[in-house]
Each structure stands twice: as structure tokens, then as C-alpha cells.
Design a protein around this nucleic acid. Structure first.
Length: 218
DNA sequence: CGCCAGGGCCTCA
DNA sequence: TGAGGCCATGGC
């Protein structure tokens, strides 16, 4: 499926940010939010010279929330950005060199506003660590293909992908980005299976046949 | 107008 | 542990 998606859509070139710091900031801003809105907030931050964790840690929360208003949840996200900024000021990037990714992940999860997906996005896209990112698109895509139950928990789903994929960050990076692309164009809330690039794959056909035999809905 | 978008925290069983 | 409420803007 990875190869089919890559062939169909081409390399996605993620993360859409230019620096580690911008990726971390974007990971918080994009929580349950359209990326286009995040870009407006990032542009505001850049113009204000605040696209930096050190600057964010010094900025007043109220000023910050005004700047990131277009990204939605601006009061909540201002607080979360401050927390993430403080975290990386007290534990700079170099601090994590050579430390186990699992420990880094646990520390990230302690930060207010950094949950599993945000932590994994930071690990994978800012630090090139092989942690598979599970988002709403991933759940929808995986559930529709019968990989796991719709109510499967985060770690269960992450483990599913990590156990079937080579543990290379570049693969996790590209696959997640491709799943997002698929989720936006085909695997939408109302699924467009007829034109989906995956409905011609050998795996999909075998799966559909299986489903039919066991009387499940498609 | 309603739906949706690259979640996470808090509360309460 | 997990379900449910809450947070908010902007595009279609």
C-alpha cells in the first residue's frame, strides 16, 4: 500500500516547515486544525520574530494568543506553545543526542499540551526518530481497511504500523504524509472508494473478497 | 447554514 | 482505562 500510494501521489516532502523549531511549533498549532489556518498563524509569528522557541518562552501569553488566532483554540495553544518552548529551553536539542527515543518520548508526553500524536510528530519530523504518527486520517484509513477496530487505542495502532514496516524514519515520514494525502482526497469522511488508488491493489482486492465472504460491510 | 480540519486536557464514572 | 465536554478559526 505504501508503494501504491507513493507511486500515485509522489513524495510528499514533509514536514512543511523549514526548521526544527518551526516543526515543533507547527505540531502544536495543527492540533485538530486545518493546516491552511496553521500557516496563517505561523506567518504572524514569523513577522513578529517569534518563530523561535527561545523567543516564545519569553513572549507574553496574551500577545501570543492574538498572533496565533487564525489557528483556532488560540488561548489553549498559546499556553501549550509556552510549555513546549520552556521545555526545549531547559532541555536543548543537543541534550537529546544519543538518548533513547523512548525516553525522549516519555519526557515530551510530560509537557502540557503535548499528547501522543504531537510527541510522535516532533520525534519523527523534527528529530528523525522512527515513531509512527497516528492521526485521525490514519485511524480512518486503517479501520476502513480492517487493520484494527475503530476504537483501537493510540499505542495499539502505532504498534500495528511499526510492526509491519521497516523501522526507518524515512518510511514512517513518507507513509504518514501519504496517508494524510489519501485522507484528504479519497479516504474522506464520506469515502470515495471507487476512484481510490488503493482499490486496485492486490491487497485490497483480496481483502474485499474476504470481507464479502464473512458478511462484513465494505 | 453545517461539516470538517494532521488533538489534548479535564472530569467523572 | 475511557467516554464525553470543551476549546475556536476558516474554507467549502
Amino acid at each position: 500500500m505504501y508503494n501504491t500510494l507513493l507511486r500515485h501521489f509522489g513524495p510528499q516532502g514533509w514536514w512543511p516547515g523549514e526548521s526544527k523549531e518551526e516543526i515543533i511549533i507547527g505540531a502544536v498549532l495543527t492540533q485538530n486544525t486545518n493546516w491552511a489556518n496553521v500557516e496563517k498563524a505561523i506567518k504572524n509569528l514569523k513577522r513578529a520574530g517569534l518563530l523561535s522557541l527561545r523567543q516564545l518562552s519569553r513572549c507574553k501569553e496574551q500577545r501570543l494568543s492574538a498572533l496565533i488566532r487564525p489557528s483556532g483554540y488560540f488561548n489553549i495553544k498559546a499556553r501549550r506553545l509556552k510549555a513546549a518552548a520552556r521545555f526545549f529551553v531547559s532541555h536543548p536539542f543537543k541534550y537529546w543526542d544519543g538518548l533513547p527515543a523512548g525516553e525522549f518520548r516519555n519526557q515530551l508526553l510530560e509537557v502540557h499540551g503535548v499528547g501522543r500524536e504531537t510527541a510522535d510528530s516532533i520525534l519523527l519530523y523534527a528529530f528523525n526518530q522512527p515513531s509512527f504518527v497516528v492521526d485521525a486520517y490514519t485511524r480512518r484509513f486503517g479501520h476502513r481497511h480492517g487493520f484494527f477496530a475503530s476504537k483501537a487505542n493510540y499505542e495499539e495502532i502505532r504498534n500495528f504500523f511499526e510492526s509491519y514496516l521497516p523501522g526507518a524514519p524515512q518510511i514512517y515520514n513518507e507513509f504518514h504524509a501519504l496517508i494524510v494525502k489519501l485522507g484528504k482526497e479519497y479516504c474522506r469522511p464520506r469515502a470515495l472508494c471507487d476512484s481510490c488508488p488503493l482499490n486496485k491493489s492486490q491487497f485490497f482486492l483480496a481483502y474485499s473478497k474476504n470481507k464479502q465472504e464473512s458478511h462484513h460491510s465494505p
